[in-house]
Write a protein that binds this DNA or RNA. Structure first.
Length: 153
DNA sequence: GCCAACGTTGGC
DNA sequence: GCCAACGTTGGC
């Protein structure tokens, strides 16, 4: 079982958007970065947990906890010419992009990046490094537990 | 809106 | 295979 952090821009897809979906489940599609894809494709398993992180907004931070409920399969948006995620070089026989499905586990209070930066225990988190643009990053189990403690306090 | 940092593209 | 140019991301 692994822990992750998954970024989303709330103006495009927020935690409340997920909350409103039937089954509170969504395909994490549209990822077009090989490193993030490989995390989903090769390392994510059903039962893994992830922080849902709001980026590129007035109050960036962790907004909730989600669970991986389906392992990676081809991202359907790559085959759709109407989609902004369409990839002409991908085919159904040879897909390039994969996504998992995630389900909301818990909506938490907004734990802002400003607050996360205050803890030296979290200083090594990828999401706190300047220039980090990777939308899916692994979270160390100790960091995961530490953040849960903050949320429960 | 700014700007730094990163990933990708494409010419060579 | 290199690397400059470009587009995108993301915090402030």
């Amino acid at each position: 079982m692994r822990y992750w952090l998954m970024k989303s821009e709330p103006s495009k897809f927020s935690l409340d958007n997920l909350l409103a979906l039937p089954g509170q489940t969504t395909a994490w599609d549209g990822v077009r970065n090989y490193q993030a894809r490989n995390f989903m494709w090769k390392q994510m398993h059903v039962g893994d947990l992830a922080f849902f992180y709001h980026s590129c907004c007035a109050q960036p931070g962790i907004a909730g906890i989600v669970e991986v409920t389906r392992s990676a399969y081809p991202d359907v948006t790559q085959f759709d010419p109407e989609s902004r995620f369409y990839d002409a070089k991908a085919s159904r026989d040879n897909p390039r992009w994969f996504n998992v499905e995630i389900t909301l586990k818990e909506k938490t209070r907004l734990l802002t990046i400003k607050e996360l930066r205050q803890y030296s225990e979290l200083a090594r988190m990828r999401v706190l490094q300047t220039g980090n643009r990777l939308s899916i990053t692994p979270v160390d189990p100790d960091e995961w537990k530490f953040i849960l403690k903050i949320l429960q306090a």
